[in-house]
Amino acid sequence: MVDPATPAIPMRVGKSERNGMTDIAALIGRIFISGVFIISGIAKIGAPTATMAFISSVGLPFPQLGLAIGIVIETVVAVAFLVGYRTRMMAAIIVVYCFATAIFFHNAWSDVNQLMHFWKNMTMAGGLMQVIAFGAGRYSLDAFRS
């Protein structure tokens, strides 16, 4: 029997609990999150030598491969995330990328700037995990395809 004194709290936000503002917020969130990656990916395309030098400077092997991975994730995957195509999977890929870049590139925590970049990556990963949990919303290719 349900205790009437205890309000029912939905465990997940289903389609019936969503409203227009929720879906607009999801779209705006995808725009903001993907923008960071798309701009960074374009910068990598424009300055591949500098990017490979940075990859090498932290001791990682195969800087050309690292550059290619960065460009693909920051452009192709980020655009797919932006338009809401297989959004949860794209968000998961970017979460792994955020963790990897935080660990390999922003691990000098005695440098306040690097510490802030580390936590910026963790914050973006947290936002992306919300997308993994709740989906892309109505304004996405995922919603259009279903």
Score class of each variant (00 low, 15 high):
Gln114Lys: 09
Trp119Ile: 04
Trp119Lys: 04
Leu115Lys: 13
Ile93Gln: 01
His117Arg: 06
Ala102Phe: 09
Met90Ser: 06
Asn107Gly: 03
Ala92Trp: 02
Ala102His: 11
Asp111Gly: 11
Ile103Pro: 10
Phe99Ala: 15
Phe99Leu: 13
Phe105Lys: 10
His117Pro: 09
Asn113Met: 12
Gln114Cys: 10
Phe118Cys: 12
Asn113Glu: 10
Ile94Phe: 03
Ala91Cys: 04
Met116Ala: 15
Met116Tyr: 10
Met116Arg: 10
Ala108Glu: 10
Ala92Pro: 05
Phe105Pro: 05
Thr101Cys: 04
Phe99Asn: 08
Asn121Ala: 12
Gln114His: 09
Met116Lys: 11
Asn107Gln: 06
Trp109Asn: 07
Leu115Gln: 15
Tyr97Thr: 01
Ala91Met: 05
Ile93Ala: 04
Trp119Phe: 14
Gln114Phe: 02
His106Thr: 14
Phe118Glu: 13
Ile93Pro: 01
Val95Met: 07
Ile94Ser: 02
Cys98Phe: 03
Ala100Asn: 14
Met116Thr: 10
Ala91Gly: 00
Phe118His: 07
Ile103Ser: 07
Asp111Asn: 11
His106Val: 11
Ile94Lys: 01
Trp119Met: 12
Ala108Trp: 00
Ala92Tyr: 04
Asn113Ala: 12
Ile93Trp: 00
Phe118Ile: 14
Ala102Trp: 07
Cys98Trp: 12
Met90His: 05
Phe104Arg: 07
Ile93Val: 01
Val96Glu: 02
His117Glu: 15
Phe105Leu: 12
Trp109Pro: 00
His117Tyr: 09
Asn121Arg: 15
Thr101Val: 15
Ala108Asp: 07
Ala100Thr: 11
